[in-house]
Design a protein around this nucleic acid. Structure first.
Lengths: 255, 255
DNA sequence: TCCCAGAATTAGGCGACCCTAAAAGCCCCC
DNA sequence: GGGGGCTTTTAGGGTCGCCTAATTCTGGGA
């Protein structure tokens, strides 16, 4: 009651939609490359680099980011909390819209991208509960908990797989609807087992065995397909034929 | 291909959330009092009157409104289409969130108020389909069709009912969550038959018979309760006792 | 008819986000 | 060790939506 300069009870306004988008983008850049450069963010957010600099300054002044000029940014715990909360909303929404309302796989991302800024926590938790608290979204990406923890896994790219090796597709890291549609069309849903049959030299197409069918895909597409971590994959290579199904259920590691 | 000045194929950007809110407010003001004054809109939107003037000018220049300075505004067909589309989204969302996800009656409005600007038409139609294309929202308000027609009915206020008369509550025209909670608590859900037992003089409380219980409510609350149109009500008065249930099902006229 | 209270509009500003162009900094390669 | 190329930041604007204060208009009553 008399504390003069200590923790003031002032509560700043909730983060705006652009703020949530920036923090989400920083989180994803950090995850991918360990750090987030201005140009990475500009590309991810489809915004001019100068705009990123301005917003980053503001976010840093509000305690969401640490910014070392010319050196990129890092999330503070406060910023990470907002990012994970936003990602949870996004992925729960994607799961719900797909599973309950039948929104197609390749269109659900853009829908969730807008709704994630408008849905209340209460609503998101109701959706999660209706689905039995799923651990991954329909693209195979892990859903952070309401408490802000996430089971991130280091994933490899299908493009890096050794010929003859088998791996489980975990997710597709591209948002392009046409690409998503095509990936679904050739049967590469999250959780699918796929074997790299052959790789043509000089950036030529990769031959994949999906189920009992062989399909050829370009290296660009293959690079977008995230598969289980290379360590696990190395194991998978050795006993690929001997291990037809170890955990064919959920694409994410269930405990 | 050579038309020099005819209909240019330029498509302007989709209306922003504030624009949708303004047009919705104009629609509701027109419905209530036949016209929309600057001060009405300012009150409805919780915004300074000067802000309304500015926005109204912009909306008029974009063809959403007709504005006669110092005389108020009117929706153009284009503006009405946006308003009805927004109201449809809002009411379908309210219906879905209440019926499927169990969002409480008194909290669903604010949730829909945000989601209505973010949900795609496709999503809203999926929700409507999942519910079997409802005609009214949980507050009893009619839902416009996807084509933009609405079955508006002129509703009276419970406060204007003659003592002894019976009417069916159609909706509550107040967004105050505490009021909505109280109204639900005393059993006044949309569709409920209610009889005005007595009215204390000089702005005193009204005694209502709801089911087999009498409840007293203040005139302010009673004024918020919309009941079937007075013409129908007049009829209802005369054969109130003789007509226990004519269409006890849906509060809106089902064909 | 005149006047005045209340409603509406104009004037002048502010913050959030975005842009282009120009300047500055960083780093690798010669 | 000095450039040159790419990245980042600064400088200077623009739009949208909102605000307060000052001004103008409208309409009803004396």
């Amino acid at each position: 009651m008399s504390a003069p300069a200590a923790g003031p009870p002032e509560r700043d306004p909730p983060p705006s939609a652009p703020v949530e988008d920036y923090l989400k983008a920083v989180y994803e850049c950090e995850l991918r490359s360990g750090s987030a450069a201005t140009s990475d963010l500009a590309a991810a957010l489809q915004v001019a680099p100068a705009s990123v600099t301005g917003m980053v300054r503001r976010l840093a002044s509000q305690g969401y980011l640490d910014h070392v000029p010319y050196r990129g940014v890092q999330l503070t715990p406060r910023g990470r909390a907002v990012a994970l909360r936003t990602i949870r909303r996004h992925r729960v929404l994607e799961s719900y819209l797909t599973a309950v309302l039948g929104v197609p796989w390749d269109r659900v991302h853009e829908e969730a991208e807008r709704l994630e800024h408008a849905a209340s926590d209460d609503l998101v938790e109701r959706m999660a509960a209706a689905l039995g608290h799923p651990r991954t979204d329909p693209h195979g990406a892990p859903i952070p908990t309401a408490e802000g923890t996430i089971a991130e896994r280091t994933l490899g790219s299908l493009a890096d797989l050794a010929p003859g090796a088998t791996a489980r597709v975990v997710m597709v890291s591209d948002r392009n609807p046409a690409l998503l549609r095509y990936v679904a069309e050739i049967g590469l849903h999250p959780g699918t087992e796929v074997m790299l049959v052959a790789r043509a030299p000089f950036g030529g197409p990769l031959t994949l065995r999906i189920g009992d069918r062989d399909t050829q895909v370009g290296p660009t597409l293959a690079a977008q397909l995230r598969v289980e971590d290379s360590a696990e994959r190395a194991g998978a290579v050795e006993c690929a034929a001997a291990r037809p199904a170890d955990g064919t259920t959920a694409p994410t590691g269930t405990p």
